[in-house]
Design a protein around this nucleic acid. Structure first.
Lengths: 332, 332
DNA sequence: CTGTTAGCGCGTTCAG
DNA sequence: CTGAACGCGCTAACAG
């Protein structure tokens, strides 16, 4: 389909009657090459459309300028956003990103890690799946784990616990005291942090919320919204937007309207959160900053683990409990 | 961070007192190696945790077993789904996927293509951005363009036009005759195909729908939903789910309820389509099949361009027009 | 200072 | 089954 095959450093060298070493040095600004000659070389390289062979360079230097990013499930809307943030941060450093999807399966995760290592990635950024732990010692390249402050080996994460506190404070502040927490998967440290943050604050206020565990999916939220007895609660705090959104749709079908009959909060500020009706009060992570720190770590620019602040996003899914709702007799 | 550095083919060779060529042959099943020796070699390789150096292999063979996937904007929910489909298809063939995001910018797209070539991808799959054209001749590797039947050089695509027809037939069938089409970007061939499919059918039925162009975003749909005079229409067909969803939220705020006052359709069957209220009647693409054909093409398994069928997904956003709505006097 | 020589890295491949 | 060249860019050691 094309003619543009070769064009190597040797071609430039012979064409200009110099050595390949000089060409290599000129093109990369290393060693000593007179600027006049260097300029000539660059011009010739351009003219020939020379592009260094990546494999050859990688072979010699042992660096592929590629990092692997492992996400638990690219189908869940938070992770494409993460991937984008990582790609932007990587591009700034001249790195390419190989994306792998563990599809929620720890074995698949191991497989992906091995594959990526075999492909010569210089570093890995891993968002672990289902509470697994990656021992960076098992892996011959730097690994940045992005999960939660509670995750062993975590390098960068949002402050999920603080996010939970923000939600809880907000709900208390507007007068809620009978609470349901959709806690997400029991084995997820991220979910656990979020929930613990909420509970801390509630407990401190003498409120003991009810807890329900489930998957972090829309469907699980929807199922809970259909099954639970809503009369006991004035507000529901979900550990994930998807959960909250599924819940919202389901309870709406039962005649429970948000926020009049019940306030509802999510977590993550997915694009959906502003789209659903009513728009969801939630917590936003600063993915860009988290991604950037993870990259700085694997690039060796820092060796500290960092937790980044989150932000409460107030929308229309939360309101003061109505006297009616407080009476515990809303539509059922 | 680790000890597991080397372990090369040579190490195995000396350890077993054979040549590297033999090891290479044994490990890949090529050439003639006695099966006894081959077994021994495999055992030793295992024991040493040998993994072939990807760069060295790529250098020698000229194949990196990596393909590049270029999407217009990974932030738009259809493209992660696409990326997933491509990754699955690639994995079946033992290929890794390098993802690039042109961010809606043709220049960025060119840059990404060059970068990927320089990285030695064996092939490219490109979903073009904003009506651009990629001349495969410019690129020294096979390129599969995924866009629409109307795109020059298109290799795999859904039958967007037929999808448009399905929508239009459905709307006619349930009795709509005053139609608004949210046509998406004027320069998108995909959008154009979808809209033309609809218009064909409407025209044939003597119906001339109104057309509005805009971005393919939620926000654009929302803006249109706020501005347009709804009284003229009994149904609205959007060329993208995002557009439809934005529109739905906006018109709901104006007291227009779907589908009672106005039917609404989308296109793509994003995950959102079933989440919004009411769930959206839309058209589903078979991404898996499209991705698979694109991979088969770049793998040289086929040299034909193919267009794949789409499927109408009926949900609750469409209904027969009410007499009231037909009278053109619904809430405004 | 400027430039060259030569060998390396590692799996593959082909004539022996 | 072996020996040795090969692909291509990098980089010490060396020479002008």
């Amino acid at each position: 389909m094309s003619q543009t095959r070769p064009s190597s450093i040797r071609e430039i060298a012979t064409k200009l009657g110099v050595s390949t070493a000089t060409v290599s040095n000129a093109l990369r600004g290393t060693g000593r090459v007179s600027s006049a000659l260097a300029a000539q070389i660059r011009v010739e390289a351009d003219r020939l459309g020379y592009v260094p062979d990546h494999a050859a360079r990688a072979l010699r230097t042992g660096k592929s300028n590629t990092i692997g990013l492992l996400v638990p499930n690219i189908g869940q809307p938070l992770f494409p956003a993460f991937a984008q943030a990582v790609e932007r941060a990587a591009k700034r450093r001249g790195l390419a990103v190989l994306i792998g999807d563990s599809q929620g399966d720890p074995q698949q995760q191991d497989f992906e890690i091995r594959t990526m290592i075999a492909r010569g990635v210089d570093a890995l950024i891993v968002i672990p799946t289902r509470g697994t732990t990656i021992a960076p010692a098992d892996v011959p390249v730097p690994v940045a784990v992005i999960d939660s402050a509670a995750t062993v080996g975590n390098i960068a994460a949002s402050d999920h616990r603080e996010g939970g506190r923000l939600i809880a404070h907000h709900l208390l502040e507007i007068g809620h005291d009978r609470l349901l927490i959709l806690a997400g998967p029991e084995n997820s440290l991220v979910a656990c942090e979020r929930v613990e943050g909420m509970r801390e604050v509630f407990r401190h206020a003498g409120v003991e919320p009810a807890l329900r565990y489930s998957d972090a999916t829309f469907e699980a939220g929807s199922a809970l919204g259909r099954e639970l007895d809503l009369r006991h609660f004035t507000a529901c705090a979900a550990a994930y937007d998807a959960l909250a959104i599924g819940f919202a749709i389901a309870v709406k079908d039962r005649g429970c309207s948000i926020p009049e009959d019940m306030s509802l909060t999510g977590f993550d500020d997915l694009m959906w959160a502003q789209i659903v009706s009513p728009p969801l009060t939630t917590v936003r992570q600063d993915l860009e900053t988290v991604a950037n720190h993870a990259l700085a770590f694997v690039a060796g620019e820092t060796d500290t683990s960092r937790i980044f602040p989150t932000e409460l996003v107030l929308r229309q899914s939360t309101a003061r409990p109505s006297a009616f709702a407080k009476g515990g007799r809303h539509a059922e």
